[in-house]
Amino acid sequence: MTLRPTSLNLIAGLVLIALPFVYRDPYHLHILILILIWSFAYTSWAVMGRFGLVSLGHGGFMGVGAYVTVLLWNHFGLSPWLGIPIALACAGLLALVVAYPCFRFRITGHYFALVTLALSGIVLQVITATRNHTGGSLGITPERTKGSHIWALQFDDKIVWYLIALGVWAGGLLIWSWIDRSMGRYAMEAISEDEDAAAAAGVNVTAQKLRITVISALMTAMAGAIYAQYQMFISPDTVSGIGISLQMVFAAVVGGIYVALGPTVGAIITILLAEVLRIGFGTKAVGWDNLVYGVLLVVFIIFLPKGILGSLLSSISTRSKRQNG
Protein backbone atom coordinates (compact mmCIF):
# COMPACT_ATOMS: atom_id res chain seq x y z
CA MET A 1 0.00 0.00 0.00
CA THR A 2 1.43 3.37 -0.93
CA LEU A 3 0.39 6.73 0.39
CA ARG A 4 -0.41 9.15 -2.37
CA PRO A 5 -1.38 12.78 -1.78
CA THR A 6 -4.95 11.98 -2.61
CA SER A 7 -7.79 14.13 -1.42
CA LEU A 8 -8.71 11.43 1.08
CA ASN A 9 -5.28 11.62 2.74
CA LEU A 10 -5.45 15.40 2.68
CA ILE A 11 -8.83 15.45 4.41
CA ALA A 12 -7.71 12.89 6.98
CA GLY A 13 -4.64 15.03 7.68
CA LEU A 14 -6.66 18.20 8.13
CA VAL A 15 -9.09 16.43 10.47
CA LEU A 16 -6.19 15.14 12.55
CA ILE A 17 -4.62 18.62 12.73
CA ALA A 18 -7.92 20.27 13.65
CA LEU A 19 -8.83 17.66 16.26
CA PRO A 20 -7.09 19.12 19.37
CA PHE A 21 -8.58 22.57 18.74
CA VAL A 22 -12.06 21.14 18.83
CA TYR A 23 -11.68 18.39 21.38
CA ARG A 24 -9.45 19.21 24.33
CA ASP A 25 -9.90 16.51 26.94
CA PRO A 26 -6.34 16.28 28.30
CA TYR A 27 -6.48 12.57 29.09
CA HIS A 28 -7.70 11.57 25.66
CA LEU A 29 -5.17 13.90 24.08
CA HIS A 30 -2.47 12.23 26.14
CA ILE A 31 -3.52 8.81 24.86
CA LEU A 32 -3.54 10.12 21.30
CA ILE A 33 -0.04 11.54 21.68
CA LEU A 34 1.23 8.24 23.06
CA ILE A 35 -0.43 6.37 20.21
CA LEU A 36 1.20 8.67 17.65
CA ILE A 37 4.69 8.40 19.18
CA TRP A 38 4.53 4.64 19.52
CA SER A 39 2.99 4.29 16.06
CA PHE A 40 6.04 6.10 14.75
CA ALA A 41 8.34 3.78 16.70
CA TYR A 42 6.54 0.67 15.44
CA THR A 43 6.55 2.02 11.89
CA SER A 44 10.31 2.50 12.24
CA TRP A 45 10.71 -1.13 13.18
CA ALA A 46 8.46 -2.30 10.37
CA VAL A 47 10.49 -0.31 7.81
CA MET A 48 13.09 -3.08 8.07
CA GLY A 49 10.91 -5.79 9.57
CA ARG A 50 8.78 -5.99 6.45
CA PHE A 51 11.80 -7.18 4.48
CA GLY A 52 12.45 -10.05 6.84
CA LEU A 53 15.13 -8.21 8.80
CA VAL A 54 13.75 -9.02 12.23
CA SER A 55 15.61 -6.96 14.80
CA LEU A 56 15.22 -7.56 18.50
CA GLY A 57 17.56 -4.64 19.19
CA HIS A 58 15.37 -1.66 18.47
CA GLY A 59 14.91 -1.06 22.18
CA GLY A 60 18.63 -0.27 22.07
CA PHE A 61 18.23 2.38 19.37
CA MET A 62 15.27 3.89 21.14
CA GLY A 63 17.23 3.98 24.40
CA VAL A 64 20.18 5.70 22.70
CA GLY A 65 17.84 8.31 21.19
CA ALA A 66 16.17 9.04 24.51
CA TYR A 67 19.18 8.86 26.82
CA VAL A 68 21.71 10.77 24.69
CA THR A 69 19.22 13.62 24.24
CA VAL A 70 18.37 13.84 27.94
CA LEU A 71 21.96 13.40 29.17
CA LEU A 72 23.26 16.13 26.86
CA TRP A 73 20.56 18.44 28.18
CA ASN A 74 21.04 17.62 31.85
CA HIS A 75 24.83 17.52 31.96
CA PHE A 76 25.84 20.01 29.29
CA GLY A 77 22.72 22.13 28.91
CA LEU A 78 22.70 21.30 25.21
CA SER A 79 19.32 21.98 23.64
CA PRO A 80 17.45 18.95 22.28
CA TRP A 81 17.46 20.77 18.94
CA LEU A 82 21.17 19.92 18.85
CA GLY A 83 20.96 16.92 21.15
CA ILE A 84 18.48 14.99 19.01
CA PRO A 85 20.66 15.12 15.86
CA ILE A 86 23.64 13.99 17.96
CA ALA A 87 21.53 11.19 19.47
CA LEU A 88 20.41 10.15 16.00
CA ALA A 89 24.01 10.13 14.83
CA CYS A 90 24.96 7.89 17.77
CA ALA A 91 22.12 5.49 17.00
CA GLY A 92 23.02 5.46 13.31
CA LEU A 93 26.66 4.74 14.15
CA LEU A 94 25.63 1.96 16.52
CA ALA A 95 23.44 0.48 13.79
CA LEU A 96 26.36 0.59 11.35
CA VAL A 97 28.80 -1.00 13.80
CA VAL A 98 26.45 -3.88 14.59
CA ALA A 99 24.77 -4.35 11.24
CA TYR A 100 27.81 -4.15 8.96
CA PRO A 101 29.49 -7.35 10.17
CA CYS A 102 26.09 -9.06 10.29
CA PHE A 103 25.39 -8.31 6.65
CA ARG A 104 28.97 -8.68 5.49
CA PHE A 105 29.18 -12.17 6.97
CA ARG A 106 25.66 -13.15 6.01
CA ILE A 107 24.21 -13.35 9.48
CA THR A 108 20.51 -13.70 8.78
CA GLY A 109 17.28 -14.98 10.28
CA HIS A 110 17.69 -16.40 13.78
CA TYR A 111 21.26 -15.27 14.04
CA PHE A 112 20.50 -11.69 13.11
CA ALA A 113 17.64 -11.56 15.61
CA LEU A 114 19.89 -12.89 18.37
CA VAL A 115 22.82 -10.56 17.56
CA THR A 116 20.49 -7.59 17.73
CA LEU A 117 19.14 -9.00 20.98
CA ALA A 118 22.72 -8.73 22.28
CA LEU A 119 22.71 -5.10 21.19
CA SER A 120 19.65 -4.24 23.22
CA GLY A 121 21.21 -6.12 26.14
CA ILE A 122 24.39 -4.04 25.87
CA VAL A 123 22.55 -0.73 25.78
CA LEU A 124 20.47 -1.76 28.79
CA GLN A 125 23.50 -2.88 30.78
CA VAL A 126 25.47 0.27 29.92
CA ILE A 127 22.57 2.44 31.08
CA THR A 128 22.35 0.46 34.32
CA ALA A 129 26.11 0.35 34.86
CA THR A 130 26.62 4.10 34.43
CA ARG A 131 23.97 4.82 37.04
CA ASN A 132 25.87 7.82 38.40
CA HIS A 133 25.07 9.68 35.21
CA THR A 134 21.98 7.95 33.85
CA GLY A 135 20.09 7.23 37.05
CA GLY A 136 20.36 3.50 36.37
CA SER A 137 17.18 1.50 36.51
CA LEU A 138 15.46 4.25 38.51
CA GLY A 139 15.31 6.37 35.39
CA ILE A 140 16.05 10.02 34.75
CA THR A 141 14.04 13.19 34.35
CA PRO A 142 15.10 15.98 31.99
CA GLU A 143 15.65 19.12 34.05
CA ARG A 144 12.85 21.63 33.82
CA THR A 145 13.91 24.59 31.76
CA LYS A 146 14.25 27.97 33.39
CA GLY A 147 14.50 29.78 30.09
CA SER A 148 12.87 29.33 26.74
CA HIS A 149 10.47 26.43 26.32
CA ILE A 150 11.18 26.19 22.63
CA TRP A 151 14.96 26.01 23.21
CA ALA A 152 14.44 23.22 25.76
CA LEU A 153 11.76 21.49 23.66
CA GLN A 154 9.57 21.30 26.74
CA PHE A 155 5.95 22.32 26.44
CA ASP A 156 3.20 22.22 29.02
CA ASP A 157 0.49 22.49 26.42
CA LYS A 158 -0.65 19.08 25.20
CA ILE A 159 -1.84 20.57 21.90
CA VAL A 160 1.74 21.46 20.97
CA TRP A 161 2.86 17.94 21.72
CA TYR A 162 -0.03 16.51 19.80
CA LEU A 163 0.99 18.50 16.73
CA ILE A 164 4.66 17.53 17.12
CA ALA A 165 3.77 13.86 17.49
CA LEU A 166 1.41 14.09 14.54
CA GLY A 167 4.15 15.66 12.44
CA VAL A 168 6.70 13.01 13.39
CA TRP A 169 4.21 10.23 12.74
CA ALA A 170 3.29 11.67 9.34
CA GLY A 171 7.01 11.97 8.62
CA GLY A 172 7.37 8.27 9.39
CA LEU A 173 4.60 7.42 6.95
CA LEU A 174 6.23 9.61 4.29
CA ILE A 175 9.53 7.78 4.73
CA TRP A 176 7.63 4.50 4.46
CA SER A 177 5.95 5.50 1.21
CA TRP A 178 9.24 6.92 -0.12
CA ILE A 179 10.90 3.55 0.48
CA ASP A 180 7.83 1.83 -0.93
CA ARG A 181 8.18 3.69 -4.22
CA SER A 182 11.98 3.54 -4.43
CA MET A 183 14.09 1.00 -6.29
CA GLY A 184 15.47 -0.06 -2.93
CA ARG A 185 12.16 -1.71 -2.13
CA TYR A 186 12.47 -4.10 -5.05
CA ALA A 187 16.06 -4.81 -4.14
CA MET A 188 15.10 -5.51 -0.54
CA GLU A 189 12.21 -7.74 -1.57
CA ALA A 190 14.52 -9.70 -3.81
CA ILE A 191 17.00 -10.02 -0.93
CA SER A 192 14.35 -11.22 1.47
CA GLU A 193 13.30 -13.89 -1.02
CA ASP A 194 16.76 -15.15 -1.89
CA GLU A 195 19.98 -13.37 -1.06
CA ASP A 196 22.21 -15.27 -3.44
CA ALA A 197 19.87 -14.79 -6.35
CA ALA A 198 19.56 -11.08 -5.57
CA ALA A 199 23.34 -10.74 -5.41
CA ALA A 200 23.67 -12.60 -8.70
CA ALA A 201 21.15 -10.21 -10.24
CA GLY A 202 23.43 -7.32 -9.36
CA VAL A 203 21.94 -6.13 -6.09
CA ASN A 204 24.50 -4.88 -3.60
CA VAL A 205 23.06 -6.91 -0.74
CA THR A 206 25.18 -5.49 2.09
CA ALA A 207 24.68 -1.85 1.07
CA GLN A 208 20.93 -2.20 0.60
CA LYS A 209 20.43 -3.89 3.95
CA LEU A 210 22.67 -1.38 5.71
CA ARG A 211 20.75 1.51 4.24
CA ILE A 212 17.39 0.23 5.42
CA THR A 213 18.78 -0.67 8.85
CA VAL A 214 20.28 2.77 9.40
CA ILE A 215 17.06 4.49 8.30
CA SER A 216 15.11 2.32 10.70
CA ALA A 217 17.56 2.94 13.56
CA LEU A 218 17.49 6.72 13.02
CA MET A 219 13.68 6.76 13.07
CA THR A 220 13.57 4.63 16.21
CA ALA A 221 16.07 6.89 18.00
CA MET A 222 13.93 9.87 16.99
CA ALA A 223 10.91 8.17 18.56
CA GLY A 224 12.90 7.63 21.75
CA ALA A 225 13.97 11.28 21.91
CA ILE A 226 10.43 12.59 21.31
CA TYR A 227 9.06 10.18 23.91
CA ALA A 228 11.62 11.40 26.46
CA GLN A 229 10.82 15.06 25.77
CA TYR A 230 7.09 14.45 26.04
CA GLN A 231 6.98 12.15 29.08
CA MET A 232 9.78 14.02 30.89
CA PHE A 233 10.83 10.72 32.42
CA ILE A 234 12.71 7.81 30.98
CA SER A 235 13.91 4.59 32.50
CA PRO A 236 15.44 1.48 30.97
CA ASP A 237 12.06 -0.23 31.33
CA THR A 238 10.14 2.36 29.33
CA VAL A 239 12.51 3.16 26.45
CA SER A 240 15.14 0.46 26.27
CA GLY A 241 15.84 -3.17 26.81
CA ILE A 242 14.46 -6.40 25.54
CA GLY A 243 10.90 -5.83 26.74
CA ILE A 244 10.56 -2.74 24.55
CA SER A 245 12.20 -4.49 21.61
CA LEU A 246 9.71 -7.33 21.82
CA GLN A 247 6.82 -4.93 22.32
CA MET A 248 7.74 -3.18 19.05
CA VAL A 249 7.84 -6.44 17.17
CA PHE A 250 4.59 -7.53 18.72
CA ALA A 251 2.56 -4.40 17.98
CA ALA A 252 3.88 -4.13 14.44
CA VAL A 253 3.11 -7.78 13.69
CA VAL A 254 -0.40 -7.57 15.12
CA GLY A 255 -1.22 -4.47 13.09
CA GLY A 256 0.46 -5.79 9.97
CA ILE A 257 4.02 -5.11 8.84
CA TYR A 258 3.40 -5.09 5.10
CA VAL A 259 1.07 -2.07 5.00
CA ALA A 260 1.95 1.52 5.91
CA LEU A 261 -0.72 1.98 8.55
CA GLY A 262 -0.33 -1.53 10.00
CA PRO A 263 2.03 -0.53 12.84
CA THR A 264 -0.28 2.39 13.64
CA VAL A 265 -3.21 0.00 13.96
CA GLY A 266 -0.99 -2.16 16.17
CA ALA A 267 -0.20 0.83 18.40
CA ILE A 268 -3.87 1.79 18.66
CA ILE A 269 -4.85 -1.74 19.64
CA THR A 270 -2.08 -2.30 22.16
CA ILE A 271 -2.28 1.09 23.87
CA LEU A 272 -6.08 1.11 24.04
CA LEU A 273 -6.06 -2.43 25.36
CA ALA A 274 -3.57 -1.51 28.07
CA GLU A 275 -5.54 1.61 29.02
CA VAL A 276 -8.91 -0.12 29.08
CA LEU A 277 -7.53 -2.89 31.28
CA ARG A 278 -5.80 -0.35 33.52
CA ILE A 279 -8.95 1.72 34.00
CA GLY A 280 -11.28 -1.26 34.23
CA PHE A 281 -9.28 -3.30 36.69
CA GLY A 282 -6.87 -0.83 38.25
CA THR A 283 -3.81 -2.34 39.86
CA LYS A 284 -5.37 -5.79 39.60
CA ALA A 285 -4.81 -5.53 35.86
CA VAL A 286 -1.00 -5.57 36.21
CA GLY A 287 0.20 -8.22 33.81
CA TRP A 288 -3.16 -8.85 32.16
CA ASP A 289 -2.45 -6.57 29.20
CA ASN A 290 0.76 -8.43 28.41
CA LEU A 291 -1.00 -11.75 28.85
CA VAL A 292 -3.55 -10.72 26.23
CA TYR A 293 -0.76 -9.34 23.96
CA GLY A 294 1.18 -12.55 24.19
CA VAL A 295 -1.76 -14.77 23.35
CA LEU A 296 -2.71 -12.44 20.49
CA LEU A 297 0.83 -12.49 19.14
CA VAL A 298 0.96 -16.29 19.06
CA VAL A 299 -2.52 -16.54 17.53
CA PHE A 300 -1.69 -13.90 14.93
CA ILE A 301 1.56 -15.50 13.86
CA ILE A 302 -0.18 -18.85 13.46
CA PHE A 303 -3.43 -17.71 11.82
CA LEU A 304 -2.98 -14.15 10.51
CA PRO A 305 0.70 -13.54 9.71
CA LYS A 306 -0.23 -10.44 7.68
CA GLY A 307 -1.67 -8.73 10.76
CA ILE A 308 -5.09 -7.19 11.27
CA LEU A 309 -4.88 -4.38 8.74
CA GLY A 310 -2.94 -6.44 6.21
CA SER A 311 -5.48 -9.28 6.31
CA LEU A 312 -8.36 -6.83 6.16
CA LEU A 313 -6.96 -5.00 3.14
CA SER A 314 -6.12 -8.16 1.22
CA SER A 315 -9.56 -9.63 1.88
CA ILE A 316 -11.14 -6.40 0.62
CA SER A 317 -8.99 -6.37 -2.49
CA THR A 318 -9.68 -10.05 -3.30
CA ARG A 319 -13.37 -9.40 -2.84
CA SER A 320 -13.34 -6.54 -5.29
CA LYS A 321 -11.31 -8.81 -7.58
CA ARG A 322 -8.47 -6.36 -7.92
CA GLN A 323 -4.87 -7.40 -8.13
CA ASN A 324 -3.49 -7.69 -4.61
CA GLY A 325 -0.28 -5.67 -4.46
Binding site: V54, G109, L246, F250, V286, G287, L291, G294, L297, V298
Partner: peptide, 21 residues
Protein backbone atom coordinates in the same frame (compact mmCIF):
# COMPACT_ATOMS: atom_id res chain seq x y z
CA UNK B 1 11.85 -19.49 10.90
CA UNK B 2 11.40 -15.92 11.99
CA UNK B 3 7.69 -16.53 12.61
CA UNK B 4 8.58 -19.37 14.95
CA UNK B 5 10.94 -17.03 16.77
CA UNK B 6 8.24 -14.38 17.11
CA UNK B 7 5.60 -16.87 18.24
CA UNK B 8 7.86 -18.04 21.07
CA UNK B 9 8.38 -14.32 21.79
CA UNK B 10 4.62 -14.18 22.30
CA UNK B 11 4.89 -17.14 24.67
CA UNK B 12 7.53 -15.16 26.56
CA UNK B 13 4.98 -12.39 27.11
CA UNK B 14 2.35 -14.93 28.13
CA UNK B 15 4.56 -16.69 30.66
CA UNK B 16 5.88 -13.45 32.15
CA UNK B 17 2.48 -11.90 32.56
CA UNK B 18 0.96 -15.18 33.71
CA UNK B 19 3.54 -15.20 36.49
CA UNK B 20 2.78 -11.55 37.27
CA UNK B 21 -0.95 -12.23 37.46
Amino acid sequence: PINQLLATGGVLFVLQSFATV
